[in-house]
């Protein structure tokens, strides 16, 4: 056992010496930063209720009244009633940022003309805010005209502003941060074998009092532990940001099982293609294939991570986790067995 530990320590030293783990963390930091940027940028642009940075805007309202009530309720909008041509003149002279004109047809149809500047960030933000207000206005008018409709009008009140985009954090960001280290760990497991084969240093290792399976086990141990360790780091960061993550043991099991699957595949590929330069490309292809195949499971892995982290895990989740764990053990055993045989042949 201590020999296995010595080999694992050597692997860890190599990884630290090459500072490759730093690159891996930077990659994940980018994914996190990029995703958060998307979250802030996208939900800000497409979901007006989540925009915290609303710019103050002057609005000219033209019309008989109705929509202006909602406009006046918005704290960042300053509304002044104007006559149509005066409003347009004020817009062109940049004295107001937008013109809102409301016209009511004979059948009760409200036509709202929104005059905005083209393509600027303030105009885009204003338009997204208008969208939210217009939706509420539509709901209000619809409910008032319920008598003219067959279908019952259902409305859900606009919820209070959320602190963080919940679905995004738990169903996109967290799964990405769980599975990126897993993918990298699988690649590392394969790479360590490739390296020994290509530089022909396996002979040196074989002179140690260790069998080939134990050498492979030692090489697998470090990547196998690195993936959950990185995941825990991100979860700690999320928790510090008041985004609690439920079911830590379940997530660790998920990370370990998927790492076992990819690392087993990585080692087998490296042993099979060890002499050529195609190991990484073959690993990427197999990883894509496995990722696609995983979508056939009762719950796909991204969904699995999201449900575990939000504490919404049900029987479907535990079944899938069981399947993944079994697959992980089988893949690693088969991959290592195959690799061990290949490497013994290599030596002969």
């Amino acid at each position: 056992m201590s020999q296995l530990g010595a080999l694992a320590r050597k692997e860890l030293r190599d990884i630290l010496r090459e500072k490759t783990i730093v690159v891996a963390l930077v990659v994940q930091l980018f994914i996190a930063g990029f995703s958060t940027f998307l979250a802030v940028g996208l939900t800000g642009l497409y979901d007006p209720s989540s925009t915290s940075a609303r710019t103050r805007a002057d609005i000219a309202y033209v019309g008989p009244g109705g929509f202006d009530g909602l406009l006046k309720d918005a704290r960042n909008l300053h509304v002044q009633p104007l006559e149509a041509s005066a409003a347009v003149a004020a817009f062109q002279a940049r004295r107001v940022d937008a013109v809102v004109q409301e016209e009511i047809g004979a059948d009760g149809l409200h036509t709202v003309n929104l005059l905005l500047e083209d393509g600027g960030i303030p105009a885009t933000l204003l338009l997204t805010q208008m969208k939210g207000l217009l939706e509420r206005y539509e709901e209000h008018l619809r409910t008032a005209e319920q008598g003219r409709l067959q279908q019952q009008v259902l409305t859900v009140p606009v919820p209070a502003k959320a602190d963080a985009p919940y679905a995004f954090v738990y169903a996109t960001l967290l799964p990405l941060l769980v599975f990126t280290p897993v993918f990298l760990s699988g690649a590392v497991a394969g790479d360590t074998v490739t390296q020994e084969v290509q530089t022909r240093t396996l002979v040196l290792l074989r002179s140690a009092p260790l069998g080939v399976p134990r050498i492979l086990a030692g090489k697998l141990l470090v990547p196998l532990l690195l993936a959950p360790a990185q995941m825990l780091l991100w979860i700690a960061l999320l928790t510090l940001n008041h985004l609690p993550v439920a079911n830590l043991p379940g997530l660790i099991a998920l990370s370990l099982s998927t790492t076992l699957i990819l690392a087993g595949a990585g080692v087998a590929i490296a042993a099979g293609f060890g002499r050529s330069n195609t190991v990484q490309a073959a690993y990427a292809l197999v990883a894509i294939l496995l990722a696609l195949g995983s979508l056939l499971l009762p719950a796909n892995p991204l969904n699995l991570a999201a449900l575990l982290a939000t504490g919404a895990a049900d029987a479907r989740v535990w079944t899938t986790l069981g399947i993944l764990a079994a697959l992980g053990v089988v893949t690693t055993a088969v991959g290592m067995g195959w690799a061990a045989r290949r490497l013994r042949m290599e030596r002969a």
């Binding site: 817009f91 149809l109 409200h110 036509t111 709202v112 929104l114 905005l116 619809r142």
Partner: peptide, 9 residues
């Protein structure tokens, strides 16, 4: 009951 015309100028 609401239709919007978006005008850019």
């Amino acid at each position: 009951p609401v239709l919007v015309n978006i005008l850019n100028a």
